[in-house]
């Protein structure tokens, strides 16, 4: 483009530094390949690649800053307000007598057709929730718990009242629905005389079962603070007082944990006598 002489011949130091940088880069790349070939090691691989790219960056940077002129150029700016006659010409081209946009009636009909197509295209989205599955309201209200469902431990063993000693928190799951997201519950044994408010789902000699899901955002309230009778949510630090029917005492949760009514069956195992006292987990619009 230009036959003008550019910058003065580079000082040899600059050339040397650039070449050195690229050599370092090549060394890094080779180092990476060798590390990989020798069995791989995350730290060495990362360090080698970093060295390779640092070398590349340094070389290019010195080149761009020292061997070519930086700055000193100006480019004109046409502005973005087109001349009025240019605008008028474009507008005229668009609204010529035979232009489609002048046939209002046809356009309205076309608009109707396109709208109908657009709305119709939304219908298949409903398939995202397969038709044979429960609707949200129903699915959110119902859990696998129900009358007669046995309580299992995380290991899949049925639970007896004696398996829940004082001071322990035992995670329990419904038989036949251990993977359900809304089912996890926990059992603890408290001293009944310390109840300030009786558990809404009742208790078996101090043994109470509550939903494990925080009523704020649904995280498992697995942090049990023995002695204080409180459980804590790891996500947003809501805590619930089990002595007061799992009422929220601090943090952003506003509702109590739903309780699970339980009884002991003839074989001595714990069984639910119904579903949770309220839909478990976070709140939603149609929650009763």
């Amino acid at each position: 483009m230009s036959r003008r002489p550019r910058v003065a011949p580079a000082p040899s130091g600059v050339n040397r530094r650039i070449i050195l940088s690229f050599l370092v880069s090549a060394a890094g790349a080779i180092g990476f390949a060798v590390t990989y070939g020798l069995g791989g090691h995350t730290q060495w691989e990362g360090a080698c690649l970093a060295v390779a790219f640092v070398g590349l960056a340094t070389g290019l940077a010195i080149w761009g800053r020292r061997l070519v002129p930086v700055g000193g150029y100006v480019e004109e700016h046409e502005g973005f307000v087109p001349p009025p006659d240019e605008q008028a010409l474009t507008a005229a081209a668009l609204s010529a007598p035979d232009s489609p946009i002048r046939r209002r009636g046809l356009l309205a009909a076309l608009g109707l057709a396109l709208t109908a197509l657009g709305v119709a295209a939304l219908f298949p989205l409903r398939s995202l929730l397969p038709w044979d599955r429960a609707r949200p309201l129903r699915a959110r209200r119902d859990t696998p718990w129900g009358p007669g469902v046995r309580l299992l431990t995380a290991g899949g063993q049925p639970l007896r009242p004696g398996d829940v000693p004082a001071g322990a928190l035992v995670g329990v799951f419904p038989e036949g629905g251990t993977d359900a997201g809304d089912a996890p519950a926990f059992a603890v044994r408290l001293q009944p005389e310390r109840f300030t408010r009786p558990p809404s789902a009742g208790h078996l000699d101090g043994l109470v079962v509550y939903s494990l899901l925080c009523t704020h955002a649904g995280c498992p309230v697995r942090l049990y603070l023995k002695g204080t009778g409180r459980v804590l949510c790891p996500c947003h630090q809501s805590s619930f007082n089990l002595f007061a029917d799992a009422a929220p005492v601090a943090g952003p949760a506003a509702r109590r944990l739903p309780g699970l009514p339980v009884a002991v069956d003839a074989d001595g195992y714990l069984r639910a006598t119904g579903d949770f006292t309220a839909p478990p987990g976070a709140g939603f619009w149609s929650r009763p």
Binding site: G162, D163, P165, G167, A168, L169, Y224, K226, G227, T228
Partner: peptide, 13 residues
């Protein structure tokens, strides 16, 4: 033992 606030895990658990 369950020191402090830590729950206990006796042999039933």
């Amino acid at each position: 033992v369950g020191p402090g606030l830590m729950p206990v895990f006796p042999s039933q658990v």
